[in-house]
Amino acid sequence: MIVAGVFIGVNNTVTTQAVMTVSPVERPVASASYGFVRFIGGGLAPFVAGRLAEHFDSQHAPFYLGAAAVLLGAVILTAAHRQLGEAERAQAAELAAAGPVTARRERLEESALAEDLGSAT
């Protein structure tokens, strides 16, 4: 459980940073939207898994759906890899141009967001 939790925590942090980096809206809006999608999915997953198992009369159906979702996510991340890199470079250039005070505030905001997400999991 602990080892799995480490991987989930790292994945959560990396995914959250990627979402915040490429989002065209302000950070609070992106964070709230991302949190809503993530937690509504976590709340609906047990219900949907049960319905899938009943409908297909197979305990394996939810796992097949999960595997398909993972593959789809890998395809999307592979396709969006270039955009993520461009967004990170643009964000770094913007922070450098804004000066040290803004860059420090941005790092503090990211640190606070990481702490909030870490305590939510």
Rank of each mutant, 00 (worst) to 15 (best):
R107L: 08
Q59C: 08
E94K: 10
T13N: 08
A90H: 13
A79N: 08
A32P: 03
D116Q: 15
H81C: 12
A53Q: 02
E26V: 11
G66E: 10
T102E: 08
S58N: 07
T16A: 09
G43W: 02
S111E: 09
A97P: 10
A87F: 04
L84K: 01
A79V: 11
G43A: 12
Q91S: 06
G66K: 02
F36D: 12
F39W: 13
R107D: 13
A114T: 06
G66C: 12
S31V: 06
E115V: 15
V29S: 07
L52W: 00
F39R: 10
F63M: 10
E109V: 14
G73T: 04
F56I: 07
F7C: 12
T13A: 09
G5D: 14
G50R: 01
S111C: 14
Y64G: 02
A114E: 05
Q91R: 14
E54T: 12
T15G: 01
R89K: 11
G5M: 01
F7V: 02
Q83V: 14
L72V: 11
R107G: 11
A32W: 13
F47E: 07
A53L: 02
A67W: 01
A30C: 08
G9I: 09
L117H: 02
V75T: 13
F7S: 04
G43N: 14
V101R: 06
D116K: 15
G99Q: 03
L113P: 00
G73M: 11
S119G: 13
E94C: 06
G35H: 00
A30W: 00
N12I: 04
R89I: 08
V19H: 03
E88H: 07
E26M: 11
T13F: 01
V48S: 05
A69G: 13
L71C: 08
V75A: 15
I40D: 11
L108E: 07
V6A: 13
R104T: 11
S33Q: 08
E54M: 14
G41K: 08
G99K: 00
E26G: 12
G99D: 07
A79H: 10
E94T: 02
G9A: 05
A90K: 03
E94F: 01
V10Y: 02
G66M: 04
I40N: 07
A103F: 07
